[in-house]
Amino acid sequence: MSIFKKKLTVNEAINKAHTSQNALLIDCRIKEEYSHGHVAGAINIPLEKMTADRVLRRIPDKEKELYIIGSYSYKPQNAVRTLKKMGYKRAVFGGYMEEHYGVLKK
C-alpha cells in the first residue's frame, strides 16, 4: 500500500459525485468563470466568498462527500482546506476545469 494518495482527475471527481448518493460537486471558481461553462449539477461557491455562514446555508449536512473542482487560478485544494476547517471532513480535491473533457453547461 502506498503512503501517497492519488489525486482524482476532474472527470473522476465528476463521475464519483454524480454516482454517489450522498455527494455534491462544488465549483470554487468565480461566478464569471462558472457562467462561461460548468459541469451539470455543480454548485458554485466561489473560493473568496466561502464563509461558514454561506456554506452552511447551502450545505447543512457536514457528512456529505464534497468533490471540489476549480481552476489553476482558483485552487480547489485551498477550498478543501477551508471547508475542512468549517467541519466538512469529507471535502476532497476534485481537479481542475482546465483538464476537463466533456460537455459544459452555460
Results as ranks from 00 to 15, higher is better:
residue 3 I to C: 09
residue 43 I to L: 14
residue 104 L to H: 05
residue 61 D to H: 10
residue 80 V to P: 02
residue 84 K to R: 15
residue 30 I to S: 09
residue 2 S to E: 10
residue 63 E to R: 14
residue 95 G to L: 04
residue 52 A to C: 03
residue 37 G to F: 04
residue 87 G to K: 10
residue 27 D to A: 03
residue 17 A to H: 02
residue 101 Y to K: 06
residue 85 K to G: 03
residue 31 K to P: 05
residue 10 V to H: 04
residue 13 A to Y: 01
residue 65 E to H: 03
residue 104 L to P: 01
residue 39 V to I: 15
residue 90 R to I: 05
residue 37 G to W: 03
residue 57 R to Q: 15
residue 20 S to A: 15
residue 25 L to I: 05
residue 73 S to N: 06
residue 53 D to E: 10
residue 18 H to T: 02
residue 59 I to W: 00
residue 37 G to P: 09
residue 96 Y to P: 00
residue 62 K to Y: 02
residue 93 F to E: 11
residue 73 S to H: 04
residue 92 V to Q: 11
residue 95 G to K: 02
residue 65 E to A: 04
residue 103 V to R: 13
residue 40 A to K: 13
residue 94 G to L: 08
residue 11 N to E: 13
residue 5 K to C: 02
residue 70 G to H: 05
residue 73 S to A: 14
residue 13 A to V: 06
residue 38 H to V: 10
residue 31 K to N: 12
residue 88 Y to M: 07
residue 36 H to N: 15
residue 97 M to V: 11
residue 86 M to C: 11
residue 30 I to T: 07
residue 92 V to T: 14
residue 17 A to E: 06
residue 46 P to T: 03
residue 15 N to C: 07
residue 80 V to T: 06
residue 85 K to P: 01
residue 68 I to Q: 05
residue 72 Y to L: 09
residue 102 G to A: 07
residue 21 Q to C: 04
residue 88 Y to D: 15
residue 22 N to D: 13
residue 40 A to R: 09
residue 4 F to V: 14
residue 43 I to H: 09
residue 3 I to R: 01
residue 48 E to V: 08
residue 66 L to S: 01
residue 106 K to P: 03
residue 26 I to R: 03
residue 42 A to I: 10
residue 47 L to Y: 00
residue 100 H to Y: 15
residue 97 M to G: 13
residue 44 N to K: 00
residue 93 F to P: 09
residue 20 S to E: 15
residue 91 A to R: 09
residue 23 A to C: 08
residue 1 M to S: 12
residue 52 A to V: 11
residue 30 I to D: 15
residue 74 Y to D: 11
residue 57 R to A: 15
residue 101 Y to P: 00
residue 46 P to F: 00
residue 27 D to P: 05
residue 24 L to Q: 00
residue 48 E to W: 00
residue 68 I to C: 02
residue 20 S to Q: 11
residue 32 E to R: 15
residue 3 I to L: 14
residue 62 K to C: 02
residue 56 L to E: 14
residue 60 P to I: 03
residue 102 G to E: 06
residue 18 H to C: 02
residue 12 E to I: 11
residue 60 P to R: 13
residue 78 N to K: 12
residue 58 R to K: 15
residue 39 V to L: 00
residue 104 L to F: 11
residue 48 E to I: 02
residue 57 R to S: 14
residue 92 V to C: 14
residue 38 H to G: 06
